[in-house]
Design a protein around this nucleic acid. Structure first.
Length: 430
DNA sequence: TCTGGGGTCCTAGGACCC
DNA sequence: TCTGGGGTCCTAGGACCC
């Protein structure tokens, strides 16, 4: 049975506009009001643009090498991505949002679903304006706020807020009369949960926008798209199917993978790269209290070359582990299995799977490690993690990482490290 | 020369069991 | 002629997300 408050509960999708570009502009005044683009790892392609860069018709996802010349000519500021900065800014953003919502689900680095009680006069605009104002003052970041009855409709409302000039970054799908007119403005491939394949199928069926998807035959959707499509359509119609998830679910797998700056052909290089990824992945597991009992490594050639090679190998363990030395030994062995001298490898990675919470871990009956050894290795890992936390991940590492890394990532336009310190982010006082 | 990285969920099909 | 049937578990692959 629904309580009265749940009937008055609204869902909002709040996201930061041009988040990565805004973060860089926030810590570097010279970049404000200028065309700025942020590059993916390896300086591969464009993953964020300031509005000024957008206005120059610079497209999302463009390979950098193809537009380098043009960006230069136009005087666009180009930056390599700096995820520790974006992560810090995200934390601050979410902490502020928490105080202004009933419940919050952090959906991605720059997005959150929040639930909020709708006041008696039904008008949530004053609330939304306050939130936008607060975040702009504290972080220099502009938000878009879409409001609806559920997640799918909040997402749609957010899109509308971005598309409609007079919305001022806020759109409430519940408080309009001509809903179908608005839903028709959202083309089907823009709907959350509709990807390329599904959108192609829908187009062929003559379903072009959110209104037509809402009104489409249910059985046809169920048959083709299964339960996911069904839920999506129900939410479009105003039902609540997707609950807000306020508690972070533990990760089911942890992956560390990178493309190489230059393709590699030597086993030595592959092993070294995988070892470094394994060290990172192990630390990530420990930071989330997880242990893995299936360790996988993979390597492949470039998607864009004619030679197609890809291979993976895994090892299952009797006892789940988060111990870097144990994992390193395994990864070094596995790297030999996937190596092939015939191919230029452009990307490799490690995966930690079958993750279990280390606090409630079941021990295998046959236990090879002695309790004493185990205590030693646990405290060693703890020491390493805390030293690395204190000294910015540079304090302690394994010998294998110290050799020259011929294949290292290209990050030629990284913003200076000094400015990425969160303490130096300026606060605007109103 | 140069095209990101890290996730989740669902489904179909095979292996295996009684 | 006809070659059980139902259940579970696991895996690979597809599709999608930011």
């Amino acid at each position: 049975m629904k309580s009265k408050s749940s009937l008055n509960k609204a869902m909002a999708l709040i996201d930061a506009n041009n988040f990565y570009a805004s973060c860089e502009q926030s810590i570097n005044p010279h970049l404000r009001n200028k065309a700025v683009v942020i590059l993916s790892n390896n300086d591969g392609c464009i993953i964020a643009r300031s509005p000024e860069a957008r206005a120059l018709k610079i497209k999302m996802g463009m390979p950098y090498f193809k537009v380098k010349e043009r960006l230069n000519r136009l005087g666009v500021a180009v930056l390599s991505s700096n995820y520790s900065l974006y992560g810090d800014m995200s934390k601050r953003l979410m902490n502020l949002l928490k105080d202004y919502s009933e419940e919050i689900e952090i959906y991605s680095i720059d997005e959150a679903f929040v639930s909020i009680i709708r006041p008696k006069d039904k008008n949530l605009n004053p609330w939304a304006r306050k939130v936008r104002c607060l975040i702009y003052q504290n972080l220099g970041i502009t938000l878009t706020i879409g409001i609806g009855e559920n997640k799918v409709r909040a997402k749609i409302a957010n899109k509308l807020a971005k598309n409609i000039d007079y919305s001022a970054g806020i759109f409430d799908l519940v408080r309009i009369n001509d809903e179908s007119d608005y839903l028709r403005k959202i083309s089907v491939e823009k709907i959350w949960g509709i990807g390329k394949q599904t959108s192609n199928w829908l187009q062929r069926k003559g379903v072009k926008n959110a209104q037509e998807l809402r009104d489409m035959d249910e059985d046809e959707i169920m048959k083709k798209l299964g339960i996911i499509g069904k839920r999506l359509q129900l939410e479009l119609r105003g039902n609540k199917c997707l609950p807000i998830e306020t508690i972070k679910k533990p990760k089911k797998q942890i992956q560390v993978s990178r493309s190489f700056g230059k393709p590699i052909t030597k086993l030595e290089d592959l092993t070294q790269a995988l070892a470094i990824y394994a060290i990172n992945a192990s630390a990530k597991m420990r930071s989330q209290n997880l242990k893995s009992s299936t360790i996988t490594v993979f390597a492949r050639t470039s998607h864009y070359s004619n030679e197609a090679y890809q291979k993976s190998a895994y090892k299952k363990l009797t006892n789940a582990t988060d111990n870097t030395s144990t994992i390193l030994k395994i990864v070094v062995e596995l790297s030999k299995e996937i190596y092939n001298p015939e191919h230029k490898l452009s990307k490799a990675g490690v995966l930690m799977q079958d993750l279990t919470n280390s606090k409630y871990l079941q021990q295998s009956i046959i236990n090879y490690e002695s309790q004493e050894d185990k205590n030693k290795s646990v405290s060693l890992m703890k020491t390493i993690d805390s030293l690395n936390k204190k000294f910015n991940n540079k304090a302690i590492t394994w010998a294998i990482t110290k050799k020259t890394q011929a294949w290292a990532m290209n990050r030629n336009s990284l913003s200076p490290v000094s400015t990425t310190n969160i303490k130096k982010i300026p606060t605007v006082i109103s």
